[in-house]
Amino acid sequence: MLNTFKDIVRKSSIHVCLVNCGGCNGCDIEIVALLSPRYDLEQYGIYVHNNPREADVILITGAVTEQWIKKIKRIYSKAPEPKVVACVGNCPLSGDVFNQEGGNVHAPVSDFICVDAEISGCPPRPSEILEAILTVAPGAIASRGREANGKNKKNQVTGGK
C-alpha cells in the first residue's frame, strides 16, 4: 500500500538538475526551450530546479573538461538516492568535435558516473529530450525507490547527505 502510494508520488513529481560540464550551451538552451508554453515541461510534473540536492534526474550536457572531473562525481553523490542520469547531446557520449588532438576534454561521461539514458544529436530537439526523460525517468525512479526501500531503509536517508 505504502509502496504504491510512493510510486505515484515519485512518478508525478520529478525534479531536474541541469549540469553543463563543458559544452557549447546549445543543449542548455534547448532545455530552456522545454520550459516554453509550446513544450510545457511542467504539465508532466517535471520541474527544472538546478539543485543537485533535490534532483531526481540529472541532465548532463557537454564533454567533461579538466575542472569537472572531480566535481561531476561530487554532484552525482550529492543527489538523493532514487536518481536517474540522462546525457543530452553528443558531447557527453563521445566528446563530439572537441574530442580531437589538442582538445581539453575527457569524454565520455560514463567513465565517471553511471548513465541511464543517452540522447544523441547536436543538439537534440526539445521534443526528443522530453521524450527521453518521460520514457526513462518515472519508471526507473519508482522501481529504484522500491528496491532501496526493500533492501535497506538507510539508503534513502544517507543518499541525501
Binding site: 553543463n20 579538466e66 575542472q67 569537472w68 568535435v97 572537441f98 588532438e101 581539453n104
Partner: peptide
C-alpha cells in the same frame, strides 16, 4: 572562470 575551456583554438590549428 575556467569550467568550460575546451581548447577550440588549439584544435583548429
Amino acid at each position: 572562470y575556467g569550467y568550460v575551456h575546451r581548447g577550440i583554438e588549439r584544435i583548429m590549428e
